[in-house]
């Protein structure tokens, strides 16, 4: 699935996450910022990667600004980001 637009989803409120997705050629780049980075950066990265694998996104730049979101929140936000980035309205 190809990312065509820049999309931004979520918010910076507590327990939420703000995700920005942008088109990028030939690689998947994931940048994570989090208030619980030291404790959970691996888990956050895995959640993001899982959604990308599931929706077959292989080329994109993804910026995650996490404010302590649960895994299910991160996955839901990721899904929305990809669908919007693809140009489908959500």
């Amino acid at each position: 699935m190809k990312i065509k637009n820049i999309a931004i989803v979520g918010s910076l409120e507590s327990n939420d996450v703000m995700i920005t997705i942008e088109p990028l050629e030939n690689k998947l780049e994931i940048i994570i910022e989090s208030i619980v980075y030291d404790q959970f950066n691996e888990e956050i990265k895995k959640a993001v990667q899982d959604v990308c694998d599931e929706l077959e996104v292989k080329q994109a730049k993804i910026k995650v600004n996490d404010r302590g979101a649960l895994e299910c929140t991160i996955k839901a936000r990721m899904e929305a980001a990809i669908i919007r980035g693809k140009g489908e309205i959500l």
């Binding site: 820049i6 931004i8 979520g10 918010s11 910076l12 409120e13 507590s14 703000m18 920005t20 404010r67």
Partner: peptide, 12 residues
């Protein structure tokens, strides 16, 4: 956080 989120989305 609500305000900043809104402004950042607008900037983006």
């Amino acid at each position: 956080a609500k305000i900043i989120s809104n402004l950042l989305i607008k900037c983006s």
